[in-house]
């Protein structure tokens, strides 16, 4: 059994010390993310099974399920986290964009919404990343023309709702990651190195 990791703010509850209901959620996260370990973002919520269950349900249905490609959703979460300066989420979701972090991270100037990758990322992705990042960081500034831009890019109503849901998901992910003070998972770095 590994010794519990102490954290100044939220306690990191390891798989071994988790109660059965929390263990069940941990297992589900491993299955869904196809990872052999539990991410710190979940482990830091292991002391409150109710909140963990709710937050996992939100994350799962918003990010892991639906019609929009996961890579686009991960790009959105990555971009919001990077622009907000959430270290944990920008690193984790950069890795999740199918190891795109190798392309993205070394380039300090890379901003998905700009045109560096204009020829390789379809325009629909770039517009979605741009508009949803705005919704996450400056939701009061969102206008009808932002919605029109998404429609013009070919997204229908259901897809637009699914895209916008990434904004509040990113905010939840960033908030919990930042206030809990968690660090990027060493296992995640190892798996992807």
């Amino acid at each position: 059994m590994s010794s519990p990791i102490r954290n100044k703010r939220y306690r990191i509850v390891s798989y071994e010390e988790a109660i059965p209901s929390v263990k069940k959620i941990y297992d589900d996260t491993k299955k869904k993310f196809q990872l052999p370990f539990v991410l710190n973002w979940f482990k830091c919520q292991g002391d409150n099974p109710t909140l963990l269950a709710g937050n996992w349900a939100k994350l799962k249905s918003t990010l892991m399920e639906g019609d929009i490609p996961k890579v686009l959703k991960q790009l959105i979460i990555y971009n919001v986290s990077k622009e907000r300066g959430c270290d944990y989420c920008s690193k984790a979701h950069g890795i999740f964009v199918d190891s795109l972090s190798e392309e993205i991270s070394p380039n300090k100037d890379f901003i998905v919404t700009e045109n560096i990758y204009a020829t390789i990322i379809p325009e629909s992705y770039r517009i979605a990343v741009k508009v949803v990042t705005k919704a996450a960081l400056h939701h009061a500034d969102i206008t009808d023309s932002d919605f029109q831009e998404l429609e013009d890019a070919g997204f229908d109503y259901a897809e637009i709702q699914e895209l916008m849901a990434q904004a509040d998901l990113a905010n939840m992910l960033n908030t919990i990651a930042d206030i809990s003070g968690i660090k990027i998972d060493s296992e995640l770095i190892e798996v992807c190195s």
């Binding site: 490609p69 996961k70 890579v71 686009l72 199918d98 190891s99 795109l100 190798e102 392309e103 990758y117 020829t119 390789i120 990322i121 379809p122 992705y125």
Partner: peptide, 15 residues
């Protein structure tokens, strides 16, 4: 990794 591979990585899931 060349640009084409990156493009395929991005569009692989969608395809």
């Amino acid at each position: 990794m060349d640009i084409l591979s990156t493009k395929y990585r991005i569009t692989y899931e969608a395809f």
